[in-house]
């Protein structure tokens, strides 16, 4: 074995390694704190705070809830509003205040507070002739706009009319609309003079 291969191991064993006692540099502490802060912000925004329902890419339980299908009266109102805008809103207005010489108001109308059969009769059969709404006389003609709607759609739009713009007259179910439709079938369009 040649001499150059002898490494320093033939020297007597030296003392163990030592460590200097200089302090931890400040930059690494600042970096740790900065990363902790940024990490906490990231966690706050993306973790859903340990909610077991929240999976990526969603970031919170609230965001998840906004994508859930609605149920109950809220969803019926939202659906009714959409039907109202298609069939009724053009004349009665999105705000339900009606239009002069075109359609009487629905907001605060005593007709919206009447029994469901009387109310359903208007869209189902149409309305011709004089009518008193909120103390004013109207003498116009409305086609049976709701006759072609399904029971569920008509119930939704009636609920919308009875529950919007300050009206608080309760929801209408599809079964009630069905009953009303059966009650007036075959009858000619009515022309009630005034609310009873």
């Amino acid at each position: 074995m040649s001499d150059e291969l002898k490494s320093n191991i033939s020297q007597p064993p030296d003392a163990g390694p030592t460590a200097s006692r200089s302090t931890v540099p400040i930059w690494i502490i600042l970096l740790t704190l900065l990363l902790l802060f940024l990490g906490a912000v990231y966690f706050d925004r993306h973790s859903g705070w340990f909610d077991k329902q929240v999976y990526a890419p969603y970031t919170s339980a609230d965001e998840l809830a906004s994508y859930q299908p609605k149920s109950g009266e809220a969803s019926m109102l939202a659906h009714g509003k959409a039907v109202y805008e298609t069939y009724c809103g053009l004349c009665h207005g999105s705000d339900g205040l009606g239009k002069p010489a075109q359609a009487p108001p629905l907001a605060g109308s005593e007709w919206a507070a009447k029994d469901i059969t009387s109310l359903a009769r208007i869209p189902l059969a149409g309305l011709n002739g004089p009518i008193q709404v909120k103390g004013r006389d109207w003498n116009l003609s409305m086609a049976p706009m709701g006759a072609s709607l399904s029971d569920a759609d008509l119930a939704a739009v009636l609920t919308c009319i009875r529950e919007s713009w300050g009206n608080k007259n309760g929801a209408v179910s599809a079964d009630e609309v069905k009953a009303a439709r059966a009650a007036i079938s075959g009858h000619p369009p009515a022309a009630p003079n005034s609310p009873k």
Binding site: S47, G48, V54
Partner: peptide, 23 residues
Amino acid sequence: PVPAWMPVLSSFAAVLTVVPVLA
């Protein structure tokens, strides 16, 4: 495909391991 807080916490910890690596 696990609840979001697990990978988020894991990423948080992984970014903080920059500290011992730099040390």
